[in-house]
Amino acid sequence: MDIIVCVKRVPDTSEADLAIDKGGKDIQKGGLDYDINDWDRFAIEEAVLIKEKTGGKVTVVTVGDEDAEEMLREGLARGADEAFLLWDESFEGSDGYATAHILAAFLKQRSYDLVLTGTLADDDCGGQFGGMLAAMLGVPVATLVHKIEVKNGSITVRRELEAGLSERLDIDLPAVVSVATGINEPRFVSIRAVRKVASIEIPTVDRGELGLDEADVGSAGAKVEIEKVFLPPEGEGAEIIAGSPADAAARLAEILKEKGGIA
């Protein structure tokens, strides 16, 4: 089975102290470490696991500049066979929609059975890429998938619903599957494993080769625009709910209800 994995390089913001950039439309990214989006790591691993079972080829692809090459190389070290970097200066400022557009153009030029990606990216927290891509390619999609069984010409997936409930779906191939973290245990990539794939060339594919118009990509092709960003007001620790335990519990129940803590 030929699998193409779409991955994204994101700043590691989960542990870092964040500050807003002067322009007010983004955060200061200078001191941040970048790495592959955590969800996408699981997608690569899943692709390699499927390949190990069924044979075929795994391709890793991203939209990004040369800084993203290291991430692709790690994908090769994980067991992917080839990698592509889709980059053109005009791609700068692409939102989820424009990015899906670029990758759809790339995918339309190739043959594949399955496209894998992570359900969510930790930078834009959009959770939209897989669904958009599938729609653009005209193939079915499933997101938040935590189990994939490969059949002949189709796959059976399990996707997570809320509160421990999952649903099983049968999906014809080709298809796009956005995986959930925890679908597998991504393998460890040693320094040597990366060194071993150092000689594999990672081609860069530009806008012209993808046959895209400037108006379709980058901020021009984006459907949404960030007007401003700001840090949510920081709470000075917990608001302590006073009163007798029973009263406090009752108040807490209301807060939970209000804040979506009761499913």
Binding site: I27, D122, A222, V224
Partner: peptide, 16 residues
């Protein structure tokens, strides 16, 4: 209004 960057930053988004 959405949250981005590990849900730590608020972003006001317009639809062009």
């Amino acid at each position: 209004l959405r949250q981005i960057y590990s849900y730590k930053v608020n972003a006001l988004v317009s639809f062009k």
